[in-house]
Design a protein around this nucleic acid. Structure first.
Length: 772
DNA sequence: GTGCCGACTTAGCATGACGAGC
DNA sequence: GCTCGTCATGCTAAGTCGGCAC
């Protein structure tokens, strides 16, 4: 919070934890820090000492500021600096201490901002890359926060499910468990697929029976009817849709109140955003793919199961659940986590951590990308080594070399061992089985060097690619593709389909091997390195094109997205196509067909007109009457919505609204079918112009459709968030005058704030690591 | 040497917010 | 001003990896 003074930033008490560790309501160290913060701005690590009186601290702080002003010239281009003011990043100009008028203006501007914006401003002011690092091995010196926000207790709705056609009485706990199932979409990814539905129902029902108890009448899932509850939940959704703007605003305010209380932490005197401050609510476990535990009941987590991590001097936050207390309080500055608990499905630890835009995550990110950049100077050494080892007579060495080749060239994950009774059967490089490889998949015989790799990777995403190990791209510059093919063949020889291809190695061994080349090198660094390198190379390739300078910023963004797509394909980042997306694509396709038909008709009309015959040319009727009808339906629904008081009235209003909207859509469709025509016979000139307009429309729609179709199964976001060094993108934007907003959303600009100051000619290479 | 586990990163899906187009 | 489609964000599952105990 550099430069935040009392007038600039007034953080309410509710943001801060209120209780001390021993449970009383005093918060002496916090108050002292807060006052200092309000009066002098940020408190740096070395400033804060619980045993030093406040006045001394303030004096120390002022002296330090004087010194730093003497030392530090304004940074302009070297090193990260604050972002320029943009319309959406509303923040006042930073006041200069020697200019009272300017300061007053800035303070006035600040007061116009709402609380969330002021907090955002305070966070943006902290340039962690310019601050002093905590002692080695520590992530922080002081940390305080408000703990975890728990979901509200279950409120029974009283709707009875049926068993064997009859209503069943359930206790609130049992009703809650029944409601979890009723909330599942019968057509969704879990219940929509017969394979997963079987697992889901089996697990759910076993847990449900346990909640019901042995004496309960419910014994057979087939006789269970959750439909009444499902109908009730759908009605609730409809009612929710019908809320007024005022209610919507009130709901948002309520959410903001929770965010102000739990969503911020103070780390080493700076405000930081907390990521997942809402405790996961109970429900059904929604594991992906064919997870053997999907459908099991995820229990409600009690405060007693939660451990908090904060500094010794910090006040322990009051637990928000009446009558409950935190399980444990820890003071471990080596960890980034703020709270931890265990979930009951896989007995795994879960954590509450700072948000992606925090200093913790920023430091981790920067260090990750610097490590990947350092690989630039080591990659040749590593490649040379594995190329030599590919022919080794020692099986372990040969397998290590082959696995590293695969990780380097095909960007596979390392693939740790998994227990398929506990988790979905997914694999990576080291856990590949013979059944995942198909040699010569097209039965070409002879010199064919193709292998079809087909397996489920992380999140049960299908990896299905036929790799031609004989292709030039894997063999030029001594790429050794053919040797890798031979190795695969020998590793699979005499093995059963369910046996591992790389039976002599494992991820630990592979990572140990990688560390002999470079400190801190592990398999996943290759994915970051290859993603960043691919992005940079692709962008440079486009920029070297002769037409590049003539492109508009929008066209350059398209090229950037194309490069991004190359990376996403390399890393196999997929997304499933939803039914809504499929329908939308079909709709565009059908619209395109209509436009083409209309263009053909227009051409025929022109031909006829040119021949001097204007008889029988098609015209369209007025849509006035239908438009009026639709307007009436919309107004009626609007009035019903405004007048609705009871739930029944709200449901009726929403239904009327949906009917009116459907009428409107039908009318729009009818209008579209006749959009190329006039109400009276057109002139030749009108026809020529419309044919031109339709040609342009068709071209645009064709491009749009192609773009959507190309991208429908590729997820560009994952590589942008996790793999491509953001400095490559920032430098690209700077040297091409492309606004960074076109590439990075607000969240990403905050996450990568440390990368925003790079020069236009910045390069992803080994020198990066030396920059710090 | 090996297996386990804690701590963190990476990932896709659901939903809500927003803005382009009418 | 409204609608609809797209994009951003939140949520939480599912990976990786290092350290520790045996």
């Amino acid at each position: 919070m550099a430069s935040t003074d009392e007038e600039e930033f007034d953080m309410d008490d509710e943001v801060l934890p209120k209780k001390k560790k021993n449970g009383n309501d005093e918060a002496v160290p916090k108050k002292k820090k807060k006052r200092l913060e309000e009066e002098d701005g940020e408190i740096n690590d070395e400033d804060y000492d619980d045993d030093v009186p406040l006045k001394q601290l303030k004096k120390k702080k002022k002296n330090k500021e004087k010194d730093s002003k003497k030392r530090k010239p304004d940074k302009v281009v070297s090193g990260p600096v604050k972002k320029k003011k943009k319309t959406e990043d509303v923040k006042p100009d930073k006041p200069k201490s020697d200019d009272t008028a300017m300061k007053k203006t800035a303070v006035k501007a600040l007061k116009k901002l709402d609380k969330a914006e002021r907090l955002q401003y305070a966070m943006q002011s902290f340039l962690w890359w310019d601050s002093v690092e905590p002692p080695e091995g520590c992530q922080w010196r002081t940390m305080e926060h408000s703990g975890v926000s728990f979901p509200e207790e279950y409120v029974p709705h009283g709707i009875k499910m049926k068993y064997d056609g009859k209503d069943v009485d359930l206790t609130p706990v049992q009703e809650e468990a029944a409601t979890f199932f009723a909330a599942m979409d019968p057509e969704g990814m879990h219940l929509g697929d017969p394979k997963t539905a079987k697992i889901f129902i089996k697990n759910y029902f076993a847990d449900f029976l346990e909640v019901l108890g042995k004496k309960h009448v419910i014994k057979d899932f087939k006789k269970c009817d959750f439909e009444p509850i499902r109908r009730h939940l759908n009605e609730q959704k409809i009612i929710k849709k019908a809320i007024t703007d005022e209610q919507r605003k009130a709901n948002k305010d309520d959410r903001n109140q929770v965010m102000f209380r739990f969503g911020y932490a103070i780390v080493d005197g700076h405000i930081e955003k907390v990521g997942n401050y809402n405790m996961e609510p109970p429900g059904t476990f929604r594991g992906r793919g064919e997870h053997p535990k999907m459908g099991k009941l995820k229990q409600r987590v009690a405060p007693e199961q939660v451990s908090l991590n904060l500094s010794q001097c910090a006040a322990v936050p009051r637990c928000s659940v009446p009558g409950h207390a935190w399980g444990d309080i820890k003071h471990d500055p080596r960890g980034q986590w703020l709270a931890t608990w265990k979930e009951n499905i896989n007995n795994q630890s879960k954590y509450m951590q700072l948000a992606a835009q925090s200093s913790f995550k920023g430091k981790s990110d920067r260090s990750k990308y610097n490590k990947a950049a350092l690989l630039c100077s080591n990659i040749e050494k590593i490649r040379k080594s594995y190329k030599k080892d590919l022919k080794s007579k020692d099986q372990e060495t040969k397998q290590l070399a082959t696995a590293v080749w695969v990780i380097d060239r095909l960007a596979l994950r390392v693939g740790g061992e998994k227990d398929t009774d506990e988790e979905a059967d997914t694999v990576g490089c080291c856990s590949l089985r013979v059944e995942h490889l198909e040699f010569d998949p097209n039965g070409e015989g002879g010199e064919n060097r193709e292998i079809k790799l087909e397996f489920l990777g992380k999140d049960s995403m299908l990896y299905k690619q036929t790799i031609d190990f004989g292709a030039a791209m894997y063999n030029e510059n001594n790429g050794m593709g053919e040797q890798v093919y031979e190795n695969f063949k020998s590793f699979c020889k005499k093995k059963k389909p369910d046996q591992e291809v790389f039976d002599s190695i494992n991820p630990t061994l592979l990572n140990q091997h990688l560390k002999t080349f470079m400190d801190g090198l592990s398999a996943k660094v290759f994915r970051t390195y290859n993603a960043s390198k691919t992005l940079q190379d692709e962008l440079r390739k486009h920029e070297a094109g002769s037409q590049w300078k003539n492109l508009t910023a929008t066209e350059k963004v398209v090229e950037y997205n194309n490069a991004n797509r190359e990376v996403a394909i390399l890393c196999n980042h997929q997304r499933s196509v939803s039914k809504a997306q499929e329908t939308a694509l079909e709709a565009i396709g059908s619209k395109l067909a209509t436009l083409k038909k209309q263009k053909k008709e227009l051409k025929q009309m022109l031909k006829k007109l040119n021949s001097g015959d204007s008889s029988g040319l098609p015209v369209r009727k007025s849509f006035e009457e239908m438009t009026e009808d639709v307007q009436k339906a919309i107004e009626k629904a609007k009035k019903m919505k405004e007048a609705a008081k009871t739930n029944e009235e709200k449901i009726a209003a929403t239904q009327a609204d949906e009917k009116a909207k459907q009428k409107k859509r039908d009318l729009a469709d009818k209008k579209f079918q006749k959009a190329h025509l006039w109400e009276k016979v057109p002139t030749k000139d009108q026809l020529v112009k419309r044919i031109e307009a339709w040609t342009a429309k068709i071209n645009k729609m064709e491009m749009d459709l192609k773009h959507k179709d190309d991208n429908k199964e590729v997820s560009l976001g994952t590589s942008k968030i996790n793999y491509m060094d953001p400095r490559i993108s920032v430098a690209f934007c700077k040297r091409n005058e492309v606004p960074i907003e076109k590439i990075f959303s607000k969240t990403l600009r905050d996450k990568f704030n440390w990368a925003m100051a790079v020069q236009p000619n910045w390069e992803f290479n080994e020198k990066v690591a030396l920059e710090g």
